[in-house]
Design a protein around this nucleic acid. Structure first.
Lengths: 194, 194
DNA sequence: CACCTTAGTTGACAGACGTCTACTAACGGT
DNA sequence: ACCGTTAGTAGACGTCTGTCAACTAAGGTG
């Protein structure tokens, strides 16, 4: 210990969140030790546990921050066809997946069962579904049908993207085109897509 | 130790598989200790680790057995409409989910990220997809389209069922009807369902 | 029956998460 | 300037997974 820093809890928290984000982005969840996080943040393990009662809690906070950031950035361009909009959204999403590879993999694999993580992912899906739904502008029965298909499709996309992130089975473009094709294929007979 | 039993490895393995199945069915994954399994099976922890190099390996073996059993039992009745067949298949699946609650929850939540578990689930999905696909009897382009929708739908079904198992948000019948309705809704405009 | 292969035991250890208690020192208010 | 609140530390402990080395004994075979 050189000199002990006494910070405002809120500020300390954001610092810890940042170090956590850095480490969880750098290596797989299991390889990030609470010890490491504490050390990198220049505090004791005990204090880290005071702020985040468990490793999962820390990760959940980190992940939520990242997810919120994505949702905040990803704005739909009201101009352009629906295909273009969805395509752009997919690109943004894949960018995000690539940029946060380890974090995303941890959330969707190692911690897929965690209630908190699940909640975050569910909310993320719900938000995306809502936006897509708004972008389509359907009403009533059609809207509900499209909503169901969309949610199912989001599941499909997430699964495929996570698998792709882990196994790199195809090119980035192919991935996007497969997802887009799946949506078009599923939705085309239901409503006029473009 | 009363008397030490020296068994044929194959037989010992099946015994361990059975005790494992019993315990993993009785309580959540985290609450089943390797210690417990060894004790229940009347052997030492070290020997258990000789047969299954990790707790996950043990669980994977247990889960695979259960999944294979389900696939073995679930036979499609060639008579009857497709709706009836899918409905029956769904019922069988939900039965299986209820009967193996903790095991299914462990596989789909706690261990959702495990490669081995994922492989088992993937194979299970692929098998179900194949059967449904065969039951529909479509060819070529239609077959491929239906296959994609089916896989996506299986994702939807699994997600919904696991969530239902954990949260019991609706009745058994509602669950089945929601799943069936989703398939009909998604597939109806694509091909003649019945 | 004696022997030998190999199934099985024992106990100690390392690594990681998480808990707890007692201690220390930074900083804001009077 | 001091002093109390409370951020922060030190470090020992318990639990569970997984590893290892040294030992023991069942049971088929010559």
């Amino acid at each position: 210990m050189s000199t002990r820093r006494r910070l405002d809890p809120a500020q300390r928290r954001t610092e810890l969140l940042d170090t956590g984000a850095r480490l969880f982005a750098a290596r797989p969840y299991e390889d990030v030790l609470m010890e490491d996080v504490a050390e990198q943040a220049g505090i004791s393990r005990a204090l880290l546990y005071r702020y985040f009662p468990s490793k999962r809690d820390l990760f959940a906070a980190v992940y939520r921050q990242a997810a919120d950031r994505l949702l905040g950035e990803a704005t739909f361009d009201p101009a352009g066809s629906l295909t273009e909009q969805v395509s752009a959204a997919l690109d943004a999403h894949i960018d995000y997946f690539v940029a946060n590879r380890n974090t995303v993999l941890a959330a969707n694999r190692s911690l897929a069962g965690d209630r908190v993580i699940q909640t975050i992912i569910d909310e993320e899906c719900a938000a995306l579904q809502q936006r897509l739904l708004d972008a389509t502008g359907f009403e009533n029965r059609t809207r509900d049908l499209v909503a169901a298909v969309l949610m199912s499709w989001l599941m499909f996309v997430r699964t495929l993207c996570v698998d792709w992130l882990a196994n790199r089975t195809c090119s980035r473009e192919e991935l996007r085109d497969i997802c887009l094709g799946a949506l078009r294929g599923a939705l085309n007979p239901v409503v006029r897509f473009d």
